[in-house]
């Protein structure tokens, strides 16, 4: 495709019956997503609060746990998600330009990076298992058993990363569904703003991880 320019498709929105104008519909959708993201933030904030309280009440135990977490996998995963944010931005930009095929590629790249994150995360959990870092398994000894309070922060780690993982799994599923929908020729003419709305969600999962990583892995290591 060396010198052939990309054929830009028309980009527009199909007006739903409850709205009067397309601008109104577009803004309503964006505002709705922001309102949803507010709830997501408060959901994770509760966990960050738990982590902070544990750091106040049991600082030594928390440090003990953080030194046993897989710092480098966490860091790599952060890089992976930052990359996926870039591909998501590319999908949004190209959807605005009407470059449907490019956009589909960017969406698939985003989904792949998300899956890579999950793979790495799974490997990390396996290592945790291997190193006897799963105190909730009744039939398996716990390597930090001498420090009881360390269990609490470790549990916050599992719940936070697990909840974030659930968000990623949901995110990837929706993303694949959206890519399938967007592969139809009329998509950009009728639902272009869905890409933008979804993009907000994806960036926000990324943002949550950007907070999770230091809260669990980095601080007072």
């Amino acid at each position: 495709m060396a010198d052939i320019g990309i054929a830009a498709e028309p980009v527009d929105l199909e007006l739903a019956e409850q709205f009067t104008t397309k601008a109104q519909q577009r803004e309503a959708a964006t505002l709705g997503m922001w309102a949803w993201l507010v709830t997501e933030l408060l959901l994770f904030a509760g966990l960050f609060l738990c982590a902070l309280i544990l750091r106040i009440q049991h600082p030594q135990s928390v440090t003990l746990v953080t030194t046993h977490l897989k710092f480098w996998i966490g860091a790599t995963n952060t890089v992976v998600l930052i990359c996926s944010s870039l591909t998501m931005s590319a999908a949004i930009v190209t959807s605005r330009l009407g470059w449907r095929r490019f956009m589909l590629g960017a969406l698939l790249a985003t989904a792949s990076l998300g899956s890579l994150f999950l793979l790495l995360k799974g490997f990390e959990y396996y290592q945790d298992y291997d190193e006897h870092m799963m105190p909730f398994l009744a039939d398996r000894s716990y390597v930090l058993a001498h420090d009881q309070a360390s269990v609490l922060f470790l549990d916050v780690y599992y719940i936070t990363t697990g909840l974030h993982g659930v968000h990623l799994i949901t995110g990837i599923s929706i993303l694949l569904w959206l890519t399938w929908k967007a592969s139809r020729p009329a998509f950009l003419q009728t639902h272009q703003n869905r890409i933008e709305i979804y993009g907000l969600y994806w960036h926000f999962i990324d943002l949550i991880w950007i907070i999770v990583f230091p809260v669990l892995y980095v601080l007072n290591r």
């Binding site: 709830t39 933030l41 959901l43 994770f44 509760g46 966990l47």
Partner: peptide, 8 residues
């Protein structure tokens, strides 16, 4: 603003 915290 409140419900997500009780959910958690």
């Amino acid at each position: 603003l409140g419900t997500p915290v009780i959910t958690l």
